[in-house]
Amino acid sequence: MLTTGFKLFFGFAVVALVGAAVYGVASGDLSGKDYLGFVDPSSFVGVLSLGWKGGVGDHSGYVVLVFATVSAAYLAFTLVGFRDADPEAVARLGGSGEIPPAAGPTANNVWPAFGAAAAVVLLLGLVTHAAVFVTGLILLAVVAFEWMISAWADRATGDPEANRELRTRIMAPFEIPLLGAAAVAVIVLSASRILLAVSELNAVWIAIGIPIIIVGAAVAIVAMEKPSRGAVVGVLAVGVLAIVVLGIVSAAVGPRSFEHEEEHTDEEALVTEVAR
């Protein structure tokens, strides 16, 4: 028996196929004045040979309609093969005759959002610099790996808590050092951009000021009787964010001109002088 899903997609396939045939034939004459298109006999050959032997008017539209037919027919036959994936049909797959429950919600996971952010980095890299592109690729690879581990851990046992613990035990030894190293690298890179962008004197002041602020904040937190976790995290987050944002701005502004460049220029001048 033909299923509803089959009828839906096969209907679309038939409509697209008829559309392809008519369109392929009727678009044969693109230069004439006629409104409904001049029917060129060679168009029939083109349509019947799926465009292989030419004769189709607008190849692009014709091929899109043929592929719509193929896609819809593929879905139609897949669904009829699966009996529309009706719960009763799926129950027969397992042998027990019981309808397996549909998948429940998954545990929270940062990787989908992180993956989208990595995709943005990748796109930015395609436009800006190969290094950014490679960073995006690496991030996407990390996401793919983490996703794979999470997907496995979700079904490792029937106990969600044990699954979480299992995932953490496997991944934490990799994640914590790598994330820590990445965070340090980002902060160092950002700080270096800031110090390179400002004047030499200001760089000295910043280099003195930032450690004082860090020590001051740490002393303040230690002095608190019961420092709240939220406050500590908040202070750290704001601090890191400030450094990263300033680093990005500084990178955009570019480094100041350095003395050694001038020396280099002098050197070049000297070489030129000697050459003369």
Binding site: V63, V64, V66, F67, A68, V70, S71, A72, Y74, L75, T78, L79, F82, A85, A89, V90, L93, G94, P100, P101, A102, A103, D154, R155, A156, T157, G158, D159, A162
Partner: peptide, 29 residues
């Protein structure tokens, strides 16, 4: 620990079939 329940059959295949339809159309274009 209890073993995980079996995922519901056909779900991944149906999703993949839809993705395949999209891929076919990309190349069709």
């Amino acid at each position: 620990l209890p073993a995980a329940t079996l995922p519901r059959g056909r779900t991944v295949q149906v999703g993949t079939a839809f993705a395949i339809a999209a891929v076919l159309m990309y190349f069709g274009g």
